[in-house]
Design a protein around this nucleic acid. Sequence first.
DNA 1: TATGAGATCAACT
DNA 2: GTTGATCTCATAC
Length: 196
Amino acid sequence: MPRPLSRAFFDRSVHAVAPELIGATLLCNGVGGVIVEVESYHQSDAAAHSYGGKTERNAVMFGPAGYAYVYRSYGIHWCLNVVCEHEGSASAVLIRALQPTSGLATMRRRRGVKDERLLCSGPGRLCQALAITRHHNALPINRPPFAIYAPVVKPAVIVGVRIGLTKAVDLPWRYGFAGSPFLSKPFKPLLAQKTV
DNA sequence: TATGAGATCAACT
DNA sequence: GTTGATCTCATAC
């Protein structure tokens, strides 16, 4: 039997929670899969939505841990985060990619693509596949329609710099399931990234 | 393989 | 008015 993740699991440093989410199973109305890629965002981090303080959009990040923070990206897509570390600072983990395991036919229909690797390999793609929208903002991540389970086996986790940012681009706060073909983009060797 | 444009909206200057 | 935690499709090499 899979072990559901408690709210307390998320009420820790975002940098402790993020790598431990790799290999966990995330479902929305029974549709979803295994988390293979995440990024962490901390209030002290210029790229975080919470960096400039509380606003109407990011208010959930300033609330208790274990809740979904869903925001509109580039006017087109939705992106899903899980809020961490309630006390002290506003932080969240961006869910960037899943390995689809449940509801494949539903996800193919919603996404309009057949290739399994293109169903959930990106934050915007996975929200479309799981039908996550603004209506899911501020919902608990471990209560229906969501469900989240601990990894059955601890996978090997690789680390890299985050993707698509213009601020704080060098922070190694991206985590991935080593060797997974379902990552949004490949990880480069961390030591090679700064070489000229 | 790599680079560029367009879609489209809320926060911010 | 500009920018962005994105994705897709088109064109170029």
